[in-house]
């Protein structure tokens, strides 16, 4: 494989990092590390959705729980859109404006799950960018694929 110029390499690292942030595991997928990508996507998405299920979407709120939101948004930029929806609230059957609320133990557990999911994705973003920097995907990814071909 031809060696990239330093400008191309920089752009490639940014693309890998952004892909890994937008969709968990996509960074590794671009590096041909498909098994890692599948494990990362399923695990982090399951963790995040479990957190949302336990605490409801009310736990994602950039106004009332900013520190948690900063960890949660590392899961994907889509969390920012969700937070926007949550802060706006919804109209009930009588046409009154209502808020999505969450409190108590389910809120704690939900925030913990979603926050950890975001932080784990940050770890995966660093991992994908580092692998791209080292050219790992071109070596190890191919090595794994050929071993089981």
């Amino acid at each position: 494989m031809s060696k990239r110029s330093s400008a191309d390499q920089g752009l490639w690292l940014i693309i890998v990092g952004l892909a890994a942030w937008v969709i968990p595991g996509a960074g590794h997928f671009l590096l041909r590390e498909r098994k890692r990508a599948i494990i990362i996507f399923i695990t982090i998405t399951a963790l995040f959705l479990t957190g949302l299920y336990v605490g409801s979407i009310g736990i994602v709120n950039h106004e009332t729980s900013k520190p948690w939101f900063m960890a949660q948004v590392l899961y994907s930029p889509a969390v920012g859109i969700l937070s926007q929806k949550v802060t706006v609230g919804y109209l009930d059957a009588d046409g009154n404006q209502q808020e999505y609320t969450s409190f108590g133990h389910p809120c704690d557990i939900g925030q913990l799950y979603t926050g950890v999911a975001g932080l784990l994705n940050l770890l995966c973003i660093f991992s994908a960018v580092y692998m791209a920097y080292c050219g790992r995907g071109e070596m190890i990814g191919a090595e794994e694929e050929t071993e089981h071909a």
Partner: peptide
């Protein structure tokens, strides 16, 4: 859109295991 019901009894500590499982899988995957 609504949180599930979780008590504050010792059994609620079992919620740490799925979290630990996810951390383990991601740590090993990276």
């Amino acid at each position: 859109t609504a949180p599930i019901s979780i008590g504050t009894d010792p059994a609620s500590m079992l919620w740490m295991f799925p979290l630990l499982g996810a951390i383990t899988l991601i740590y090993k995957a990276t």
